[in-house]
Amino acid sequence: MEFLEQLINGLNLGSIYALIALGYTMVYGIAKMLNFAHGDIIMVGAYTLSVAVSTFNVNPGLSIIISMIVCAALGILTEKIAYKPLRKASPLTVLITAIGVSYFLESLALLIFGSKQRKVASVITMKPLSIGSFELTGESIVTLGVTIIIMVALTLFINKTKTGKAMLAVSEDKGAAQLMGVNVDFTISVTFAIGSALAAVAGTLFTSSYGFVGPYTGAMPGIKAFVAAVLGGIGSIPGAMLGGIILGIIESFSKAYISTQLADAIVFGVLIVVLLVRPTGLLGKKRMEKV
């Protein structure tokens, strides 16, 4: 029974990681950059939700949409201001800029909300479901359901719509896509918007399970999701989903059966082992090297 409980816990956590990892991987696929500020978008999403719900008494469903819109706008804005001028710069420069954006968002949150963690009421009001002696919390049901819906919708969007196909084309070859008439700037903006909106959803689910938000809330889930994206093969969308779920399950099992404190070390250890066996991640594509 405990095994099943931990499995559900793992799936729950894993879905949140997967949602964040999707943002990392999509942005990496298209802009070839590690967006270190992505974790902090989660934090912005969670704060927006908490302010909307508790300060302005907006209804929870609408607040989630507001939080998604705010995050999407923030994603587009950071891309336009900070990353767009650096499209031809070295990856390291862009990485440092992303870190700068991350510091900026964290210190801004610190200035506005202070260092004390803010309580967030769960926006999920679903009753727990009991199957025999086993109880499934409302948060788990919603998290799993939402993640499955989002993943299906995202896969359909990327493979069936024109914008989705443009995203695939840009990630394959930016120059060629532009010659074929794809609006690269627009496509990149859409990618950042979708990735950030997903981070907002992840932020909502995350704070619903944990109940608090602080300026540094996004940092650790951000790094974990980044690990998940790399584990699955960065740039690959099914990879991010798989990586997130695997990471969540490993973390939850090592917390339950090995050691709570060493769970992080185990998660990172698994990543290293996987990369040594498959240097581009589980579902990553190998690239031929040319001189």
């Binding site: 650096l86 710069a89 700068g100």
Partner: peptide
């Protein structure tokens, strides 16, 4: 930090 990065590396 962001400003230095952009000023030093932006192609324009």
């Amino acid at each position: 930090l962001i400003a230095i990065m952009i000023v030093n590396n932006s192609s324009k």
